[in-house]
Design a protein around this nucleic acid. Structure first.
Length: 156
DNA sequence: GCCAACGTTGGC
DNA sequence: GCCAACGTTGGC
């Protein structure tokens, strides 16, 4: 089992939106970065833990706990000319981008980015590194446990 | 709105 | 294959 941090702009999809969705499950689509795509395609497994992170908002930080809830599948928005995520070079025969289902698991008090930076055990988190802007980053088991402990959650 | 950092594109 | 130009991300 692996752990991940996934960034979402709460104006687009907030953690509360995920919790309010049927089966607390939403399709994670619109990733247009190869490294992030490859994580979804090659490394994610159903049940992997997800730190759901809010970015580009007044209070960036980890907003909730989620899990990977499907295997990867073609991101339909790449075929839709009306979508901002349209990719003219993608075809249904040769899809370029993929999505995956994410299911909300537990609410937690926002662990703000500024607070995360104060914990030595989180200092090596990829998302905290200078210049890091990848929308999906790996989280170590120790970092995962530390976030849950800080958030006051038992293992999930 | 600013701007540093990074990824992608495309001419050569 | 190089690399300058450009576009995007995302905290502040």
């Amino acid at each position: 089992m692996a752990y991940w941090l996934m960034k979402s702009e709460p104006d687009e999809v907030s953690f509360e939106d995920v919790m309010a969705a049927p089966a607390q499950t939403t399709s994670w689509f619109g990733v247009r970065n190869y490294q992030a795509r490859n994580f979804m395609r090659d490394a994610m497994r159903i049940g992997d833990g997800v730190l759901f992170y809010h970015s580009s908002c007044p209070e960036p930080g980890v907003a909730g706990i989620a899990r990977i809830a499907s295997t990867p599948y073609p991101d339909q928005s790449q075929f839709d000319p009306a979508s901002p995520y349209f990719d003219p070079k993608a075809t249904p025969e040769q899809p370029r981008w993929i999505g995956i289902d994410v299911q909300g698991v537990a609410r937690m008090p926002l662990l703000a980015l500024a607070a995360m930076r104060t914990y030595p055990e989180l200092a090596e988190m990829v998302v905290l590194q200078k210049g890091s802007r990848l929308s999906i980053t790996p989280v170590t088991p120790a970092e995962w446990r530390a976030v849950l402990r800080i958030a006051g959650l038992k293992d999930c």
